[in-house]
């Protein structure tokens, strides 16, 4: 009964990412797409929040969105899995429902 949560806004811009973290259930997956990937840098201040979520959730980030913003894979927080568009489709199919945090 798990949920795929997609986040598309930067955590530095609005509270969608934070609200998502406040409402995930253990076993869910969070997928960072579009501007939200800027929060995935391990040197960034949002890394700690994502680290807490990793304790009971999977966290993924869409690789093409990272690349487009010049965020190299080795600067992404450890534990975040990188996926391509095919991986995005697989995640959507693996979960019972999808919740978009706008």
């Amino acid at each position: 009964m798990s949920t795929l949560h997609t986040v598309s806004n930067s955590p530095f811009e609005n509270n969608a990412f934070k609200s998502c973290l406040d409402h995930v259930t253990a076993g869910d997956t969070i997928l960072l797409i579009e501007d939200s990937v800027v929060g995935a840098r391990k040197a960034g201040s949002f890394g700690k929040e994502i680290g807490k979520a990793l304790a009971n959730c999977r966290v993924c980030a869409l690789a093409p969105d990272l690349s487009a913003r010049g965020i190299a894979a080795d600067t992404v927080l450890d534990g975040i899995e990188l996926v391509d568009y095919g991986g995005f489709v697989d995640l959507a199919a693996e979960h019972e429902r999808t919740q978009a945090w706008l």
Binding site: M1, T3, H23, T25, T98, Q99, A100, W101, L102
Partner: peptide
Amino acid sequence: GRGELSKLMSEQDVLLSF
């Protein structure tokens, strides 16, 4: 409460976000 709302959301067939 937040916990109960999270649980309600996890019981849906479809979530529509606005």
